[in-house]
């Protein structure tokens, strides 16, 4: 049905999409996880309530999350150029993806940590646990199922957003879908890329949920 050129293009698309998704998710978690922990710790009922810090982080998270990704992609072009040296290509797309995902992750982490039973945290305190102990040994461990479900949802979202990178020549399956399907009216290639995206999404979703389920000892 397709010649080898198209197939190798699709394979390259898969590779680029996975590259963008995985690297963006990892980097976004490096920023978003501590940010989410800070939100929880400084919140009113947190381990170290701090109104000013919480209000600031809360504000940043809300501002960034309220900017549509497509606009963010364009707004961040100068910053992207500063960080990776150019404003197009898969690596360049990672920058806006991370900026977009990190505050989102912070919120997910905060809400996962909110699910941890305050009684368990109190018990840990009564045993002489420090705040660091409580975060690393109680909160993150008790909330792990919820955190992994959050990560699965986030990865799926980033996969979807990475498809928009086509607009800035970002590469990946979304780029192919836009170029061939939209600009050249080659519907068959567009459909194939969409199916590939759906399969990738399903794999991420199933693997993530499976891990989360296996790690959940509450039932």
């Amino acid at each position: 049905m397709f010649d080898s050129q198209v197939i190798s293009m699709l394979l390259e698309g898969i590779r680029d999409t996975l590259y963008m998704t995985i690297v963006s998710t990892l980097v976004a978690y490096v920023l978003g996880l501590p940010l989410g922990i800070c939100l929880k710790v400084t919140s009113k009922d947190g381990l170290k309530p701090n109104k000013a810090v919480y209000a600031l982080l809360d504000f940043i998270c809300n501002i960034v999350r309220s900017i549509p990704f497509l606009i963010l992609l364009i707004l961040l072009i100068p910053f992207t150029r500063l960080v990776v040296g150019k404003s197009y290509g898969s690596t360049a797309t990672i920058v806006p993806l991370v900026v977009c995902a990190a505050p989102y992750i912070a919120r997910m982490v905060e809400s996962s940590l909110n699910e941890v039973d305050p009684g368990v945290i109190e018990a840990a305190k009564s045993m002489g646990a420090s705040n660091w102990d409580i975060v690393t040994k109680v909160m993150l461990v008790e909330a792990r199922t919820s955190l992994i479900i959050g990560a699965t949802i986030t990865t799926g979202n980033i996969l979807g957003y990475s498809a928009m990178s086509g607009t800035v020549g970002g590469g990946g399956l979304g780029d192919i879908a836009v170029r061939y399907g939209y600009y050249r009216w080659q519907t068959d290639i567009m459909i194939i890329t969409v199916i590939l995206l759906i399969i990738l999404f399903q794999i991420i979703q199933n693997v993530g949920m499976k891990i989360a389920g296996n790690l959940d000892k509450r039932k």
Binding site: D117, V120, E122, A123, M127, V141, R144, R218
Partner: peptide, 17 residues
């Protein structure tokens, strides 16, 4: 505090351990 142990109505065990 490690010398003053405490138990609770709702047990407060780590559910994932």
């Amino acid at each position: 505090r490690s010398q003053i142990a405490m138990i609770f109505q709702s047990f407060n065990l780590l559910m994932q351990k």
